[in-house]
Amino acid sequence: MTMPTALHADQARARLHELTVIDVRTPGEYAGGHLPGALNIPLDRLGRALPDIRDAAERGEILLVCASGARSENACRTLAEHGVRAATLVGGTGAWAAGGGDLERPAGNTRATWGMERQVRLTAGSVVLLGLALGEFAHPAFRLLSAGIAGGLVFSAVTDTCGMAAVLGKLPHNRPRAADLTATLARLRGN
């Protein structure tokens, strides 16, 4: 059976045992809760993992997951450019959890990490407010901060990328420990 390019949470739940699930979020987001058995290969490390993902795709079907489905769609396109077929989870872990799906967390993980989309909204909104306030009370040139963020958000929407998310993903709270890509790839290989 050929896997569709997107699965809804109920479809994925019914087939979870036969899928190799790869979570492309940051290690911090992954630690906050992921699909059972999901492997963490952050989107920015996908290229390094490509040979092992290709081998896993030859053995079975790959499901890519993120918080909302946007990053996993980008990952699917990247893999497709390299001849690797994979599907994305429609609505990501948010839809999975909303549909009653369990999320695993590493042992001892008691703190919740905000999803990247929420972090971007907080940061963008804060910088816009700061630019407006400083522009009003300090110097009008500070309004350029707000204009810069607005331009960045438009660019992000048009290109379906997010530079702010890339920067925020490198902050310590989003990388509670570095993703152990070597160990993850060994698990992907079945070692």
Results as ranks from 00 to 15, higher is better:
residue 169 G to I: 04
residue 114 W to R: 14
residue 61 E to G: 11
residue 23 D to S: 04
residue 101 G to L: 08
residue 120 V to R: 04
residue 138 A to W: 12
residue 60 G to T: 11
residue 127 V to R: 09
residue 104 E to G: 12
residue 36 P to N: 12
residue 107 A to K: 15
residue 178 A to Y: 08
residue 124 A to K: 09
residue 123 T to A: 15
residue 84 V to F: 08
residue 148 G to N: 01
residue 29 E to S: 04
residue 103 L to F: 05
residue 99 G to K: 11
residue 56 A to V: 03
residue 89 L to D: 00
residue 146 S to N: 06
residue 185 L to A: 04
residue 188 L to Y: 11
residue 8 H to S: 14
residue 133 A to D: 00
residue 176 P to Q: 01
residue 104 E to Y: 05
residue 61 E to L: 12
residue 87 A to L: 08
residue 110 T to M: 13
residue 67 A to G: 09
residue 20 T to M: 11
residue 127 V to G: 05
residue 106 P to T: 10
residue 58 E to W: 05
residue 182 T to I: 10
residue 136 E to H: 13
residue 69 G to C: 10
residue 51 P to C: 04
residue 102 D to P: 02
residue 76 C to R: 12
residue 12 A to P: 02
residue 21 V to T: 10
residue 73 E to I: 06
residue 23 D to I: 01
residue 166 A to Q: 15
residue 12 A to Y: 01
residue 135 G to E: 06
residue 114 W to N: 14
residue 76 C to D: 02
residue 12 A to H: 03
residue 101 G to H: 11
residue 184 T to E: 13
residue 24 V to F: 09
residue 96 W to N: 00
residue 103 L to G: 02
residue 19 L to M: 03
residue 27 P to I: 06
residue 165 A to Y: 07
residue 162 C to M: 04
residue 145 L to M: 09
residue 170 K to N: 12
residue 171 L to A: 15
residue 190 G to L: 06
residue 136 E to T: 15
residue 120 V to Q: 03
residue 175 R to F: 04
residue 102 D to F: 15
residue 5 T to C: 11
residue 84 V to Y: 03
residue 187 R to H: 12
residue 161 T to M: 07
residue 25 R to Y: 06
residue 18 E to C: 05
residue 93 T to N: 01
residue 53 I to P: 05
residue 38 A to Y: 03
residue 26 T to N: 06
residue 68 S to C: 01
residue 66 C to Y: 02
residue 60 G to L: 04
residue 11 Q to F: 04
residue 176 P to R: 07
residue 24 V to R: 08
residue 37 G to A: 09
residue 63 L to H: 01
residue 118 R to H: 10
residue 118 R to D: 01
residue 134 L to Q: 02
residue 48 R to C: 07
residue 74 N to P: 00
residue 191 N to Q: 13
residue 45 R to A: 11
residue 167 V to Q: 10
residue 124 A to F: 03
residue 86 A to I: 06
residue 119 Q to A: 13
residue 144 L to T: 11
residue 140 P to Y: 08
residue 44 D to G: 08
residue 8 H to M: 11
residue 115 G to Q: 05
residue 111 R to C: 08
residue 101 G to N: 04
residue 96 W to V: 02
residue 43 L to Q: 06
residue 21 V to N: 05
residue 188 L to G: 00
residue 87 A to V: 03
residue 64 L to V: 06
residue 178 A to F: 07
residue 55 D to S: 12
residue 42 P to G: 03
residue 101 G to Y: 05
residue 85 R to A: 14
residue 83 G to P: 08
residue 80 A to R: 13
residue 91 G to D: 03
residue 138 A to Y: 08
residue 119 Q to G: 05
residue 28 G to V: 07
residue 110 T to G: 14
residue 30 Y to W: 14
residue 55 D to M: 14
residue 140 P to C: 09
residue 153 L to C: 03
residue 172 P to D: 08
residue 156 S to W: 05
residue 85 R to Q: 08
residue 188 L to I: 02
residue 102 D to E: 15
residue 9 A to E: 03
residue 52 D to P: 00
residue 3 M to H: 10
residue 157 A to P: 00
residue 172 P to W: 14
residue 161 T to S: 06
residue 163 G to N: 10
residue 112 A to C: 05
